[in-house]
Design a protein around this nucleic acid. Structure first.
Length: 87
DNA sequence: GTTGAGCGTT
């Protein structure tokens, strides 16, 4: 299973590859995707990062949350889409 | 050429 993490307040110059590289420093990133507008095709300023382990996701959240990137402080937290919180 | 709250695509 993978852990999804919500990343907000991203600079407009960031991309999925950039996210994967930045978040890959804390752990194994299975996939990283920046949400882009469907109508304009431009980045909305937030994205999602999928980690291979909860430990890596927590390390990234603790290490990248409220951290400045490209001049903007990132907002990293657990994604809502995870569900399955408690059976 | 622009902007800034928000949880996406199969």
């Amino acid at each position: 299973m993978s852990v999804k993490v919500f990343v907000g307040n991203l600079p407009f110059g960031v991309t999925d590859e950039k996210l994967k590289e930045e978040f890959g420093r804390f752990g194994s990133v299975e996939s990283a995707r920046v949400v882009t507008d469907k109508h304009t095709g431009r980045s909305r300023g937030y994205g999602f990062v999928e980690f291979a382990d909860q430990v890596a996701a927590d390390a990234a959240i603790q290490g990248m949350n409220a951290q400045p990137m490209e001049g903007r402080n990132l907002t990293v937290s657990a994604a809502k889409s995870q569900a399955n919180e408690r059976p």
